[in-house]
């Protein structure tokens, strides 16, 4: 029995979804009108009608024409409020902007530009944060809908429900909008300084070439604050002896020195942990203006530098 009910509700859900998908197709911008707005009186609206009915009974039983007039007039107001609630949403144009890639546990933000020609009130969104706009102006306004990025990979922004009960709270006016936006969620960066000058390629002959040797080839470049986990051999002890501040000697890599990061070479118990470490390494390498390549199983990205390269590397991690 329980499963039947479950089945029924699933079936209903599916029907609803297909109905909405047909009625409000996905698009990066929507203009709200008759086709995509739904409107129904809510509990308060029903209460209002109940009060009207009570007034009608009172007026009829006491044969009070004024009471009847009040009742009919309240019904008229109810009707006009229906229109007002509809016009509160109708006519607004919602344009979604480009989305940006994020890391796991960061906020996925869908930014929507609201182009309205008049003042509108109380826009409630059912996104991850239940965002509410108290007032939408005639001038430009943006709203950021947020979701928590939980999983690595492709994220499709879900159909979001926008609803409002303004201006009297008697009607629920709502719409379901799919902005047809997707974005990639990269792994969460996990600090991993031991590999910051590369892991080497998995099939490389110089498998055992240590990091220290690598550094030995490069020129002294500067000092930076010591972070836990960095090799003690590179701490500038002379400096530490007089100002008690541990700093690490940094060495500039010559441009030709390509750094490789390989999934196979990164230590870690789980694949997700390894990917997280690689994410940090890639970002760090870009910050240090290194030229770096990435090896993910069979997929190899040749050494390069620049934001675009970092992006393609991270994308590869996200899709892996």
């Amino acid at each position: 029995m329980a499963s039947f009910i479950q089945y029924l509700s699933q079936w209903r859900q599916a029907r609803l979804e297909s109905f909405i998908n047909k009625r409000i197709p996905a698009s990066d911008s929507h203009t709200l009108d008759r086709k995509n707005i739904f409107i129904l009186p809510n509990w308060s609206g029903l209460c209002y009608l109940a009060v009207c009915a009570a007034i009608y009974l009172l007026a009829t039983n006491y044969e009070s024409n004024l009471g009847l007039l009040l009742c009919y007039w309240l019904l008229g107001i109810f009707l006009v409020i229906l229109y007002l609630s509809y016009f509160n949403l109708a006519g607004i144009k919602l344009v979604s902007s480009q989305t940006f890639d994020v890391h796991v546990e960061q906020n996925l933000t869908l930014q929507i530009q609201l182009i309205s020609d008049k003042d509108r009130y109380s826009f409630c969104w059912q996104d991850g944060y239940k965002t509410e706009l108290k007032k939408v102006n005639a001038s430009h306004q943006f709203v950021n809908l947020g979701w928590q990025a939980k999983q690595r990979g492709l994220f499709r922004f879900p159909r979001v429900r926008l609803y409002s009960t303004a201006p009297f709270g008697l009607f629920n006016v709502w719409t379901w909008l799919d902005f047809n936006r997707k974005t990639y969620v990269y792994p969460k960066p996990l600090t991993c300084p031991e590999y910051q000058f590369g892991t080497g390629r998995s099939d490389s002959e110089m498998d055992d070439s240590s990091n220290d040797e690598n550094i030995g080839d490069s020129e002294f470049y500067g000092l930076k604050p010591y972070q836990l986990g960095e090799p003690l051999s590179r701490v500038a002890w002379k400096r530490a002896s007089y100002n008690n501040e541990w700093q690490v000697k940094q060495f500039e890599q010559s441009i030709s020195d390509d750094v490789w990061f390989s999934l196979a070479k990164v230590a870690g118990s789980e694949i997700e942990e390894k990917l997280s470490k690689l994410t940090w390494l890639l970002i760090n390498a870009q910050q240090q203006n290194m030229t770096y390549g990435l090896e993910l199983g069979h997929k190899v990205l040749q050494p390069q530098t620049g934001a675009a390269h970092l992006k393609s590397c991270l994308l590869a991690l996200a899709k892996y």
Binding site: Y72, G76, L79, V80
Partner: peptide, 11 residues
Amino acid sequence: LIALPIGIVLF
């Protein structure tokens, strides 16, 4: 004011 004519006609 918009609602008034409705009320009157109904009445």
